[in-house]
């Protein structure tokens, strides 16, 4: 679509939507949000880009083929479940790395749930973009 208004607005909007998707991804840890919805939001940014600037520009803006993105997302998600191997727990058990504080007082911690969510984010983004690009070419 060759529209000046859309193209100009897209430049700003795509960046905003992508940042918002990261926000949703991280927010999903304790509140509504999460990897799936964040992945969809990020995919919508690239879809908007594709509508405004064309398929080729969107693909080159993404830099990585969406299929690879999806596969690496699944890999990250699957590996996050394997982290339990090191602590001797059952597969897919939650693993927590506390940076500050302890279990009773709260504080900041990193968990494999977050890694899983990042994997889901990439998988959803890759899968949806694969589909959008395939449909656009058909």
């Amino acid at each position: 679509m060759n529209s000046l208004i859309l193209q100009t607005a897209t430049r700003v909007l795509v960046a905003l939507i992508l940042v918002f998707s990261i926000y949703m991804l991280l927010r999903g840890h304790n509140y509504p949000g999460g990897g799936f919805i964040a992945g969809l939001i990020a995919a919508s940014a690239f879809a908007l880009f594709a509508i405004a600037w064309g398929m080729e520009s969107a693909q080159s803006a993404l830099r990585i083929p969406p299929g690879n993105l999806a596969a690496s997302g699944v890999l990250i998600a699957a590996l996050s479940g394997m982290l339990a191997l090191f602590s001797g727990d059952a597969p897919f058990s939650g693993q927590w790395l506390r940076l500050t504080g302890d279990k009773t007082t709260g504080g900041i911690s990193i968990s494999n749930v977050l890694i899983f969510d990042i994997g889901v984010y990439l998988a959803v983004l890759g899968a949806v973009l694969t589909l959008i690009f395939a449909l656009e070419e058909a």
Partner: peptide, 16 residues
């Protein structure tokens, strides 16, 4: 999520 994946696949298949 599963339904989304399957139906999206079906749509792409029908287009093809």
């Amino acid at each position: 999520v599963i339904g989304f994946g399957l139906l999206a696949f079906a749509l792409a298949l029908i287009a093809q």
